[in-house]
Design a protein around this nucleic acid. Sequence first.
DNA 1: ATGAAAGCGCTAACAG
DNA 2: CTGTTAGCGCTTTCAT
Lengths: 333, 333
Amino acid sequence: MAKSIFEIAQLAEVSVTTVRLVINGQDQKYRISEKTRSKIQGIVDEHGYYINQTARNLKLRKTLTLGLVIPRLGNLFFSQLMEALEVNCRNSDYQLITACSYDDPVLEQKLTENLIQREVDGLFVVSSDYDNQKKLASNNHKPVVFLDRNFGIDGISSVTTDNTQGGYLLGCAMGERLQGRELFVLAADGWLPTIQNRINGLKSGLADTGYSLPEENILVKGLAIADWENCIKTMEELCSDRGVPTALVTSALPVFEGCMEYLVSQYGSIPDDILLGTYDEHAFLNFIPNQVLSVCQNAGDIAETAFEMILKKINKEECEEPAKIVKSNLIVR
Amino acid sequence: MAKSIFEIAQLAEVSVTTVRLVINGQDQKYRISEKTRSKIQGIVDEHGYYINQTARNLKLRKTLTLGLVIPRLGNLFFSQLMEALEVNCRNSDYQLITACSYDDPVLEQKLTENLIQREVDGLFVVSSDYDNQKKLASNNHKPVVFLDRNFGIDGISSVTTDNTQGGYLLGCAMGERLQGRELFVLAADGWLPTIQNRINGLKSGLADTGYSLPEENILVKGLAIADWENCIKTMEELCSDRGVPTALVTSALPVFEGCMEYLVSQYGSIPDDILLGTYDEHAFLNFIPNQVLSVCQNAGDIAETAFEMILKKINKEECEEPAKIVKSNLIVR
DNA sequence: ATGAAAGCGCTAACAG
DNA sequence: CTGTTAGCGCTTTCAT
């Protein structure tokens, strides 16, 4: 069983300072004698040494941990984001601590407080509403970088996808392929700027290819991330009110899933003449026979940018460009 | 900005003990006078109090954190597992700390050591090989529960899926639907007992429905979780050596993805007469026109069982049934 | 009813 | 070259 610095010092009959210098490889710098060094080294090799990070954290007032509050992991985009963040952290000797908020503002608040009390050195947060974001942003005793969502608060550090641009790309591509079809848009989580931007981008892309999307063809209802079954119902409503659409855009993958689920449950399969478009990418979209266009967010870039930002904030380098925006790209099949 | 116990004590002109008793709600028990109590409460309400968990952790020699080392999060099963564990932890005031090993034994070892040095109270590990599992299991100064994989080491605490049973179910169902087709099996990560059990279960299920699977129809090659593109190549080999199969079982979702990817790249879509079967479930399997059978692992049950086990170990209650096995179920479409 | 003080394991300043 | 010591903020035991 591995020993602490003090125990090793006792065994070697030297002081803790000497042990620490050897263990931290500063024996050259402080000219520890070779005899002492090798005695200590021998004992470390024999018994092992486990540093007690907790004690070190307390003394240094930093923990080399970063917190991440994210809605869910079952959602591919978020799990990719976490994976990418975790790699960035590990490469810089940070440890990422992740908690899921299920887009519940109360839970989110509890989780961020908990992480701050655990003395994380910084915090990544995918906020679920304006108030939480505002509050956390003004709570300036821990560096915070907001991911994926910015509720329009001035001066906060955030890294988000350029949803308007992604929407525009999708709008253009759909517009070109409509060939007389009538397009419907199904969305959830409509209070998020993310979703509003996606829809606005889509509209302008469609407009630029000569298709004017009627407001009544846009259905924004309920939750997706926290409750994707809601999307099944919305699709059911759409189909019974307006018939099965021949062209459909969904605001995110859970919405897409809900829609397809409904169609399969009703018709045994996805009617093969529907033109489909969705935000978020997934390898499985390749396996659907219909034409599916999708907008791929760049989780890797978002993570990297966010990580650089938080490092700067931790090291007190002022960052003058707090709100970064990452482009996404269109995948045409 | 929130204050520490000491700072509050100074402001209230009382001792830290008194403050702590009020903050921890033990003021009744120790009969703190109402005057003192309300003075302290007032200061807490005004300035706020943030407990420094790091200091508490050091003193109490426990951190209320649990570590999780998992191959990847992009894999749905693992992200579901993490999500479920995180909920269990949160409900018992633990914080889960997750790190990804990408099934690299060296990285895995580094991550587990790192987590132990951070003084997690217990550790969940999806081990990537026998040696790591063996070593960690005998390293008995932290409670460890192994998830999803048990390399056949006696007496370790593990919670795994009953892969043989799941394989058997799939084997029976496939066998009944073959109708003269020749079945091929594609697998990766073949060194895992998980995979071996799945294949053995499958074989016996097929045998029980009168189909004897020839060994040369089973291709086990390379990695899936860490490198799913490898699966595309394996499928390419299979197709060029033996033709496009009319019945195919894959050992996990990444393998399935690779196979479908290859077929789509070659033929524009998945040939519609292939009967498909795979381990692991995903909502998107519903949207593939072919008949797809899948085996659904129960991430929620695994997490719950594992969490109960680690709590017992932390509280030193001997658990006499260390290796738990969770059934999976077949999804027929 | 409230306070004083020791100590968790580590770091860093200072002393020889 | 090596040792001593004072904290980091908290909990806990023992006084009063």
